[in-house]
Amino acid sequence: MDRILAMQVFTRVVDTNSFTRAAESLGMPRPSVTTIIQNLEAFLGTRLIQRTTRRLSLSPDGAAYYERCQRVLAEIEEIEASFQQVHRQPHGKLRIDMPASIGRLIVIPRLRDFRSKYPEIDLQIGLSDRRVDLLEEGVDCAVRVGALQDSSMVARRVGLIEGATVGSPEYLESMGMPETLEDLERHTAVNYFSSRDGRVIDWSFLENGKEVDVKMKGSISVNDAEAYVSCGLEGFGLIQSPRFMVLQYLCTGQLVEVLPEIKPSPLPISVVYLHSRHLSSKVRVFVDWMAALCESCPLLSGSDRDAQPCVPSVTDVATRHENGSIAELMA
């Protein structure tokens, strides 16, 4: 029996909480995964995984074995990585999850640069505003926006997202231009709610150096970033969006910024990954690449909250609009 392979299969079954998902992530037939676990349990002389119709759970021996497997496999990966860094580039499949807007507008338009640097990494990119479970879904790392809740993950902050409060010209002509935060009480907003718990997310501003939360009234709520911007373009109410998502519409006049002197609180961008995978060279190079990508644009680096060197002229936007590449506009 290949003990290292058995350890890898066992930890992946535990991480994904599924024989089927473990098999898919490892590129193996499901019967092979089942056989390997059965042979491993027979070799060790103990039951590692308790199987029910709905979920898997570790036996006490299984929990102890899992913890030791993590340490052994991490050490093996560290040894291999030390040689790979010298003799070859990072390689293998890298599973990433990120918000759809960041993926479509920021990462994918510049992905050719990553591919040219790391051609041996096979990328599997999930685009969703849903917060995935890295353990259960077999994801190597995820790009997340906002405050982080899960302390079991390793996180590296790679940037800050600048925001903007905007509305359509038609909406502002009908409702008027707010001049203060108090004026927002007579305005309608399109609200954004969390996919995780359904909670409507309050607006947040920085006024005189202090963070101020504002609860906006509105009759439409969505949980998708692109749909959120679309609702703003349709004039259903004010929206508070990442500036990179509304940049082209601000430049063409399809949206107008309100309260430009009272900016929304910036949101941190982080890449999170599992403790057991923190030594992976392919994860490390992706995190470094994301950090460099954010650093290259002030709208994502937080380097200057007042200057806007990424904002192009209306002529530039009209010329480049056919590409739909926000990454080009922000370069």
Results as ranks from 00 to 15, higher is better:
Phe114Trp: 03
Arg131Tyr: 08
Asp97Glu: 11
Leu105Ala: 09
Arg110Val: 06
Leu94Arg: 03
Glu137Phe: 14
Arg115Ile: 11
Leu111Ile: 13
Asp97Cys: 11
Leu127Glu: 07
Lys117His: 13
Ile102Phe: 15
Leu105Trp: 06
Pro99Glu: 05
Ser128Val: 00
Pro119Ala: 08
Leu105Tyr: 07
Val107Asn: 00
Pro99Cys: 14
Gly92Phe: 10
Asp97Phe: 01
Ser128Arg: 00
Leu123Phe: 12
Glu136Pro: 00
Glu120Val: 01
Leu123His: 09
Pro90Trp: 12
Arg115Thr: 04
Pro119Ile: 06
Glu137His: 09
Ile121Pro: 09
Ser101Pro: 11
Ile102Tyr: 06
Gly92Gln: 02
Leu94Asp: 00
Met98Ser: 02
Arg95Val: 14
Asp113Met: 08
Arg115Lys: 11
Val107Met: 06
Val107Glu: 00
Asp122Met: 12
Ala100Thr: 07
Asp113Glu: 10
Gly92Lys: 01
Arg130Ala: 13
Ile108His: 10
Ile102Cys: 05
Ile106Cys: 08
Pro90Gln: 04
Pro99Arg: 07
Ile96Phe: 14
Gln124Glu: 05
Gly126Pro: 00
His91Tyr: 11
Asp113Ser: 12
Asp129Asn: 14
Tyr118Met: 03
Pro119Glu: 07
Ile96Pro: 01
Asp97Arg: 00
Ser128Trp: 01
Ile125Thr: 02
